Computed example of a mutant assay.
Amino acid sequence: MLPAVSDRPPPSPGRGWQDRGMAEQRRDAERDRIWAELVGTARRTVADGLVVGTSGNVSARVGDLVLVTPSGVPYDRLGPDDITGVDLTGRQVLGTLVPTSELPMHLAVYRATDARAVVHTHAVHATAVSTLVPELPLVHYMAAALGGPVRVAPYATYGTDELAEHMLRALAGRSGCLLQNHGTLTYGTGLDQAYDRTAQLEWMCRLWLTASSVPGLTPSLLTEAQLAEVGERLKGYGQRR
């Protein structure tokens, strides 16, 4: 005897599958949004003269995924299909373009801090300062926005774990540092903050170079106590939601 044939439609996927699908769509949309913002930030480093050509690099963390600019590709050529991502071990999990050669530095920052974005540049004035002193002199109170006097990480070959280690030591208690004979690195809670810190660091370096170049005069510098006072005031700076 043949089994009875039911007129009922086959069961549809449960609510859990729908929720999971929607969650994945939201995750992908957020990832794509951050990638677009990252590309915009990378292009801004060129437009503002902080890098030349494909030097420098930018990254952003989305969960356990790190989106990063690819190696050797002009930023004005990057589009949505060029999205490049790695996990926190450096294994590429998204895209086909090779990630930036400075990946060890970016990953070191994400592993050691709560950073959500990192900007690395070859800004002229900041790089010049990195060849002159072990620490940017306290020529302006905005050093407090980076956590204190900005240190210079000793030189090491680009793209190496040694450079990443030097950078982390220079970043201790700071959100930015100079890289000797190389450039700058800053991080923040988002791409805007990381970029603003880079721009601020370059401006302070330019300020110090300008002031210290006047013959017969020496720039006045702030004390650690003065900087600490500014640091407290900056905690309440800006609009409150």
Rank of each mutant, 00 (worst) to 15 (best):
T121N: 07
P154V: 01
V58E: 11
T160Q: 03
T100V: 10
V133K: 07
Y75F: 15
P11N: 01
L221Y: 01
T184S: 15
A29H: 04
V133F: 05
A126S: 13
P9C: 02
L221W: 09
T198H: 07
H106C: 06
T121E: 09
I34Q: 15
E162T: 14
Q92D: 14
Q180I: 00
M1D: 11
H182W: 04
D76L: 01
A194P: 06
G21D: 10
L191R: 01
A164D: 01
T210N: 08
L107P: 03
A170N: 06
M167F: 03
M1T: 12
T189S: 15
R111Y: 02
R151W: 06
G53C: 10
T160P: 05
P80G: 08
T157L: 15
V230K: 05
G95R: 13
P70N: 06
E162G: 01
A108I: 04
S71H: 12
G53N: 07
L178W: 01
D48F: 09
P74A: 13
P11S: 10
G236D: 09
T184Y: 03
P215W: 07
D192W: 06
T127A: 15
R240A: 07
A47V: 13
V150C: 10
H125T: 10
E202Y: 05
T89R: 15
V133A: 13
Q193D: 15
L107E: 08
G236C: 00
A126H: 04
S130G: 12
G173D: 02
A112P: 05
T84H: 10
T69H: 11
L146K: 06
G238H: 12
R77G: 08
T157E: 14
P3K: 11
Y158Q: 06
G159C: 03
R15P: 00
H106S: 06
L221S: 04
R91G: 04
P134G: 10
V51F: 04
A115Q: 11
T45S: 09
E162L: 13
T127S: 15
V118P: 07
R31H: 00
T160G: 04
G147W: 08
R8N: 06
V214Q: 04
S71N: 08
W35A: 08
G173V: 07
Q180S: 13
M1Q: 13
A172S: 04
